[in-house]
Design a protein around this nucleic acid. Structure first.
Length: 213
DNA sequence: AGGTAGCATCCCTTACATCA
DNA sequence: ATGATGTAAGGGATGCTACC
């Protein structure tokens, strides 16, 4: 790094000769040098990591809470107030930003997961409803078929007070309003109960078979 | 305009400290 | 003693700015 200050340069010197090469990566990507720990030099106190004191961390946290970015003046001021190297302050902010970003990602992930779970539950509910409606539809069709068969054998219109179905024998169509009352379905579905000669389902009703397994 | 040095930052990684 | 976790720090990549 070009911007290393003297102290970091000193620390780097402690690791001199300890670098290694990463395994070759795909493409023409330049190889990264990696430092490697040397046990004998690890005992060197100057090379050991020094944990920041609670007070230093508290001050840094307060500063981070005000502003995640760190301008030069603020960095120098914090460093002198806390008795740290400006480089240490910069590193602390960098690591703190990384931790903050991770927490944010975790939070967003958990929010999305909750929303997904809700959508899955709603999907199950709707699928159950569709199945139930399909059953009702099948029942209605069967009932209709029975009525049609009965009327064709009797060859009469059923216009009694108790059952006032009007059947057009030419087209096999029953008054939808009456059917709605008969089967508890609203009467606004014109031709919904049309009984075709074949089992043909028009393309516009493909959804009926959507959930067939 | 193009090259380059200096600097800051991001990202990934390593090494050390601490704790269960 | 040891593995997991947290964190300070190293190093490469990249973007920006000033200067030549």
């Amino acid at each position: 790094m070009q911007g290393e200050d003297d102290s970091v340069g000193l620390i780097s010197q402690l690791y001199s000769g300890l670098y290694t090469q990463l395994p070759p990566q795909q493409g023409d990507q330049p190889k990264r040098r990696r430092r490697r720990k040397n046990r004998s030099e690890g005992s060197n106190s100057a090379a050991k990591k020094r944990k920041l004191s609670e007070e230093q961390v508290n001050m840094l946290e307060i500063s981070f809470g005000c502003e995640h970015k760190l301008e030069s003046e603020r960095k120098d001021r914090l460093a002198s107030e806390l008795g740290l190297d400006p480089r240490q302050v910069a590193v602390w902010f960098q690591n703190r930003r990384a931790r903050w970003k991770n927490k944010k990602l975790e939070h967003e992930y958990s929010k999305l997961r909750n929303e997904h779970e809700k959508v899955v539950v709603e999907k199950c509910r709707l699928e159950t409803e569709v199945l139930s409606l399909k059953d009702q539809l099948e029942e209605a069709k069967k009932e209709m078929q029975k009525v049609v068969e009965r009327s064709s054998t009797d060859n009469v219109s059923i216009n009694s007070p108790s059952s006032s179905l009007t059947i057009d024998h030419q087209q096999n169509v029953i008054d939808p309003q009456i059917l709605g009352e008969q089967f508890g379905i609203g009467g606004c579905f014109d031709n919904m109960f049309y009984v075709p000669d074949t089992n043909y389902v028009p393309p516009s009703m493909d959804w009926v078979g959507l959930y067939d397994m």
